[in-house]
Computed example of a mutant assay.
Amino acid sequence: MHHASSSTSQANAPAAQQVSAAYNECIDRAFRIPIFLSTANSLNNVQQQFFNRLVLEIEDALLFPRTLPQSEQYPETVLTNIRRLVISSYGMLAINFRRFFVQILEANVGQPPTTTPFWQGSTFSQIEPSMAFQFGLPILLVRERGTDTTNGIWAGGITPLNIFVEWDSDNQTVDEFFGSVQWREVFANWTAEVRGNYYLRTEPQFSLQMQ
């Protein structure tokens, strides 16, 4: 009987460990503030290294990165999915990676603004931060140098916060970027804004009215 009991305990041990690991993972996430991480889905090797390091930076700051469609996906339209994720997050960090190397050959009126080839990012790098700005989320924009320099919210003077951090992927390693003073300062300021937004939105309505 003792032998059978011992065998049963050993058989149940892996299952118990799995439950414990899953439980600990839930607890770990429970202490992190959810943020919307906007990025492209198709990345080259260097971009993937940058993205992986970015996720670690976010998690080390006790924030929980959520992105479509990797971590979140609802059975709704794309824009509805984005809106739902924006509303349920407390900050937005968007990284605009180089996606397409394009050249303008012709304009509908007059001469093309430029005939020099340039890098274009993902369409959602324009849509998702814009929706986050409309909702009032703290936004941090990171751009791979040369991407969408004259296009949409990434053009000079149009950016919601009028500030973003550039990664010079041609001359700067991933470690050099994340070790730079510029990144550490901007990231620290943004995480503070995210926490401020979290505490503000989770206060009772009565407390907000009394302030």
Results as ranks from 00 to 15, higher is better:
residue 37 L to C: 04
residue 38 S to A: 13
residue 39 T to Q: 13
residue 40 A to M: 08
residue 40 A to P: 09
residue 41 N to V: 15
residue 41 N to S: 15
residue 41 N to M: 12
residue 41 N to Y: 11
residue 42 S to M: 09
residue 43 L to M: 07
residue 44 N to C: 10
residue 45 N to G: 06
residue 45 N to F: 01
residue 47 Q to V: 12
residue 47 Q to N: 09
residue 48 Q to A: 12
residue 48 Q to F: 03
residue 48 Q to C: 07
residue 50 F to D: 02
residue 50 F to E: 02
residue 51 F to G: 01
residue 52 N to G: 01
residue 53 R to W: 09
residue 53 R to C: 09
residue 53 R to P: 05
residue 54 L to G: 03
residue 54 L to W: 01
residue 54 L to M: 13
residue 54 L to R: 05
residue 56 L to F: 12
residue 57 E to A: 08
residue 57 E to D: 10
residue 58 I to H: 05
residue 58 I to N: 06
residue 58 I to F: 05
residue 59 E to W: 08
residue 59 E to Q: 11
residue 59 E to A: 02
residue 59 E to V: 13
residue 59 E to I: 12
residue 59 E to F: 03
residue 60 D to T: 13
residue 60 D to N: 15
residue 61 A to P: 03
residue 62 L to G: 02
residue 62 L to A: 08
residue 62 L to Y: 09
residue 63 L to I: 13
residue 63 L to G: 06
residue 64 F to W: 15
residue 65 P to M: 00
residue 66 R to I: 04
residue 67 T to L: 12
residue 67 T to W: 03
residue 67 T to F: 04
residue 67 T to H: 09
residue 67 T to M: 14
residue 68 L to E: 08
residue 68 L to P: 02
residue 69 P to Q: 14
residue 71 S to L: 04
residue 71 S to Q: 14
residue 71 S to I: 08
residue 71 S to R: 13
residue 72 E to A: 03
residue 73 Q to H: 14
residue 74 Y to T: 06
residue 74 Y to W: 15
residue 74 Y to C: 01
residue 75 P to A: 09
residue 75 P to Y: 15
residue 75 P to R: 15
residue 75 P to N: 14
residue 76 E to T: 07
residue 77 T to R: 07
residue 78 V to M: 12
residue 78 V to A: 07
residue 78 V to K: 06
residue 78 V to F: 14
residue 78 V to T: 14
residue 80 T to P: 01
residue 80 T to D: 15
residue 80 T to Y: 15
residue 82 I to T: 02
residue 82 I to K: 03
residue 83 R to Q: 10
residue 83 R to A: 02
residue 83 R to V: 02
residue 84 R to N: 10
residue 84 R to V: 04
residue 85 L to E: 04
residue 86 V to L: 09
residue 86 V to R: 04
residue 86 V to S: 03
residue 87 I to F: 11
residue 87 I to N: 04
residue 88 S to N: 12
residue 89 S to P: 06
residue 89 S to Q: 08
residue 89 S to Y: 02
residue 90 Y to H: 12
residue 90 Y to F: 15
residue 91 G to E: 12
residue 91 G to D: 11
residue 91 G to F: 05
residue 92 M to V: 09
residue 92 M to C: 13
residue 92 M to L: 15
residue 92 M to H: 11
residue 94 A to K: 03
residue 95 I to R: 00
residue 96 N to G: 04
residue 96 N to V: 00
residue 97 F to N: 05
residue 98 R to E: 06
residue 98 R to Y: 06
residue 98 R to D: 06
residue 100 F to Y: 11
residue 100 F to D: 11
residue 101 F to H: 15
residue 101 F to K: 10
residue 101 F to I: 02
residue 102 V to L: 10
residue 102 V to Q: 09
residue 103 Q to F: 03
residue 103 Q to T: 11
residue 103 Q to A: 07
residue 104 I to V: 13
residue 104 I to A: 09
residue 104 I to D: 10
residue 105 L to T: 08
residue 105 L to P: 00
residue 105 L to G: 05
residue 106 E to T: 11
residue 107 A to S: 14
residue 110 G to Q: 00
residue 110 G to I: 03
residue 110 G to N: 01
residue 112 P to R: 00
residue 112 P to Q: 01
residue 112 P to V: 09
residue 113 P to V: 14
residue 113 P to N: 02
residue 114 T to W: 00
residue 114 T to L: 05
residue 115 T to Q: 08
residue 115 T to C: 10
residue 116 T to A: 13
